[in-house]
């Protein structure tokens, strides 16, 4: 019994032991409590210059740490600190709140709370860049166009961001038809592309409901897989042991089930996401913007990036279309992705 007590005591001591924070190689986790949600923010990287990239992950329902398994994240962490914020009800985020209360507006307030806490912890001199991928593009845009929120942000990096889902559906159909016909002419997966064409050609683009939107999204992912197999999209690099450790850190089962209840089965919020169109309000954004898109992104076609570039109210802007990328340019063309992000941050930090 004595040995067991000693063993337990040592184990607890090891678990609770502290280590000094190394700002140049930050490895921190903090929780932000806001409106019933307890949301972790995992902060990794070099915070020497107090430059933070706040990652707005996709989904809704994905996990912020997914991005950390890409080489892009590893290289960016060498220069800046990345805040992997788990949005409410997703990843390892916890708490008690009502599904009916979830709105895009509430989630922009969550993001505001994250910013306040980061300033509180790391100082008001900290500088923040927002990077929103996919759904994170919709959330980030909604945040920036609200009140004076954008004054807190040095720059907005939208990566294949879904700031206008009704438009996405229409652009995805156009793209599936154009690329599908090209691929059939090239005799690449002709039968499979024909199936996609048969489906999208019969859609009434004036009347796309949520169910059709889901199916367009499914077909879009499928189309990207065909192009990946035929080398039109550059294959992502294989996962390393470090990536496996990052995946181990995530809480898959709980995260997926929780996200299903919070978003997939939450028809009220799902409907809000699917019908929100922020294109008309992009002119409210006046901070520096970088729009990064994959040429073969059918999930969120690059036309949205081009539109956003044209509509934001700033001259400090750039749009980059990666020629061999799909919905995840940070994985398909990591070097080019990192170069563009670093150049942007260095220009506006």
């Amino acid at each position: 019994m004595k040995k067991i007590i000693i063993f337990l005591s040592l184990t607890i001591l090891i678990f609770f032991s502290c280590k000094k924070e190394d700002i140049a190689d930050l490895s921190d986790v903090i929780y932000i409590r806001h409106a019933g949600a307890d949301m972790p923010a995992y902060i990794y990287g070099n915070a020497s210059d107090k430059i933070f990239i706040i990652l707005l992950h996709g989904g809704p329902g994905n996990n912020a740490l997914d991005f950390r398994t890409s080489r892009s994240a590893k290289e960016l962490e060498e220069k800046y600190a990345i805040v992997y914020w788990q949005q409410r009800g997703q990843g390892s985020s916890e708490g008690h709140f009502d599904a009916d209360d979830i709105t895009i507006d509430l989630m922009t307030e969550d993001l505001n709370a994250v910013l306040k806490v980061l300033k509180y912890k790391y100082g008001n001199e900290s500088r923040f860049f927002l990077m929103g991928h996919s759904w994170g593009g919709e959330l980030g845009t909604a945040f920036l166009i609200k009140d004076d929120n954008q004054l807190q942000i040095n720059g907005w990096i939208e990566v294949d961001g879904a700031h206008d889902i009704p438009k996405i559906n229409i652009e995805a159909i156009k793209m599936l038809i154009n690329v599908g016909n090209e691929q059939i002419e090239l005799n690449n997966n002709s039968e499979k592309w024909q199936d996609i064409l048969d489906y999208v050609m019969q859609i009434d683009t004036n009347n796309i409901n949520n169910e059709t939107g889901r199916e367009i999204n499914r077909q879009s992912h499928q189309a990207e897989r065909y192009l990946l197999n035929d080398n039109f999209i550059q294959k992502p690099e294989g996962k390393t042991m470090q990536d496996i450790a990052i995946m181990y850190q995530q809480d898959w089962l709980t995260g997926i089930i929780s996200a299903c209840y919070t978003y997939v089965y939450n028809s009220k919020f799902y409907n809000e996401i699917e019908t929100t169109s922020l294109t008309g309000e992009l002119n409210k954004i006046s901070i520096p913007c970088l729009f990064l898109w994959g040429k073969y992104d059918f999930v969120v076609p690059s036309q949205l990036g081009v539109d956003a570039y044209n509509l934001v109210n700033t001259t400090d802007k750039k749009v980059v279309i990666f020629e061999k990328s799909g919905h995840f340019p940070m994985e398909n063309q990591a070097d080019e992705f990192v170069d563009n992000v670093v150049t942007f941050i260095e220009s506006y930090k």
């Binding site: 986790v29 903090i30 929780y31 932000i32 409590r33 806001h34 307890d38 972790p40 916890e94 505001n112 709370a113 306040k116 806490v117 509180y120 912890k121």
Partner: peptide, 10 residues
């Protein structure tokens, strides 16, 4: 009970 590390409330 989940026990969090540093936690801040707004």
């Amino acid at each position: 009970r989940s026990i969090y590390p540093k936690t801040y409330k707004v």
